[in-house]
Design a protein around this nucleic acid. Structure first.
Ligand code: ZN
Ligand code: ZN
Ligand code: ZN
Ligand code: ZN
Lengths: 163, 163
DNA sequence: ACTCCATATGTTATGGTATAACAACAGTTG
DNA sequence: CAACTGTTGTTATACCATAACATATGGAGT
């Protein structure tokens, strides 16, 4: 498990494992992981970063898998709605989930230096937000939690002396 | 203080008071609250809800205060960057801050029934997110915290018997 | 095999959000 | 006045997302 994602890791392996897990999950749940959907998930896993729908579309187009925006958006909708990917609102972009299968509210750490994105867990119904919601009688169904800042690598680079 | 915002309140008063406070703050800090900026803040306060940049622009246009998108976006940038307004990423929309002056990370409760938005406080550096960030060596500079769900009014309406 | 139906894909067109780039202008400062 | 800074105005364009409709595919029931 690599819940944070700013470290290096065996990327080839993680792409392959995640794809296999998605296939197994879809088979178990009678979900149709079509070539386009599978390929989009693979692109997100390979990219290992937040990608815009049009970035995805460029790849699909180049591979003859679809040339128009709805093709990309529909595949992304499928992946997001079944928990294989998340949308990062702040970036208008999508990223593969780092721990699908488990029901979770993702929280993202977005580096403004290198654009890396790490996925962590949030607990929207607890903490101050949960308390405020409870007091107001508001029922939380979904939450967007996205932190912007500097990842350890970029912080190190920043601290390096200039002269 | 009405930190939650799903209740009714003296709206005329809150618009006026907030505008006066903004003027005072700008005077103190040598910020230039120009007519366009002031009017955009007023529109957000009057609307008392999340408004898209183009909604704002429509008003400005009708009033001869600017006809092109950059006029609205620049005023909104000013307001957001000085804490008079916030952007709601999930809605691609803007809303007046309900407690400016205080340095805070806003958290929003967004009702999917009536589109009302209430502003609460978040503490991004605490809780699970803060712990995850600290462990990863990630420095949080800013956070987006937005909960979607049902406000008390809409929940009540939903529970009402149909026959 | 044939029909019906549900699901997925493909395409056109459009709508909604946001910014780059440059021109014009006003206030301030030396 | 000249130089500078900050604000506004405009054109044009880029980027993000969906509506609507046509087409194809595959399974269920007959
Ligand atoms: Zn996830
Ligand atoms: Zn970084
Ligand atoms: Zn606020
Ligand atoms: Zn509501």
């Amino acid at each position: 498990m690599d819940p944070l994602g700013f470290e290096h890791h065996d990327h080839r392996h993680c792409v392959h494992a995640a794809l296999a897990a998605a296939e197994a999950h879809c088979a178990r749940h009678r979900l149709n992981l079509t070539p386009v959907r599978r390929r989009v998930l693979e692109l997100l896993l390979e990219g290992h970063r937040a990608m815009g729908a049009y970035d995805i579309l460029d790849h699909l187009r180049a591979e003859g898998l679809g040339a128009q925006p709805p093709v990309a958006y529909r595949a992304l909708d499928f992946l997001v709605s079944h928990g294989f990917a998340h949308k990062i609102e702040r970036l208008n972009a999508f990223i593969a989930c780092t721990h699908p299968e488990t029901d979770h509210t993702p929280a993202f750490l977005i580096c403004r230096g290198c654009n890396a994105v790490a996925e962590a867990h949030a607990e929207p119904t607890r903490g101050m937000l949960g308390r405020a919601a409870a007091e107001a009688g508001f029922e939380i169904e979904q939450a967007v939690v996205e932190a912007l800042g500097r990842c350890p690598n970029c912080r190190k680079a920043e601290e390096a002396p200039c002269a």
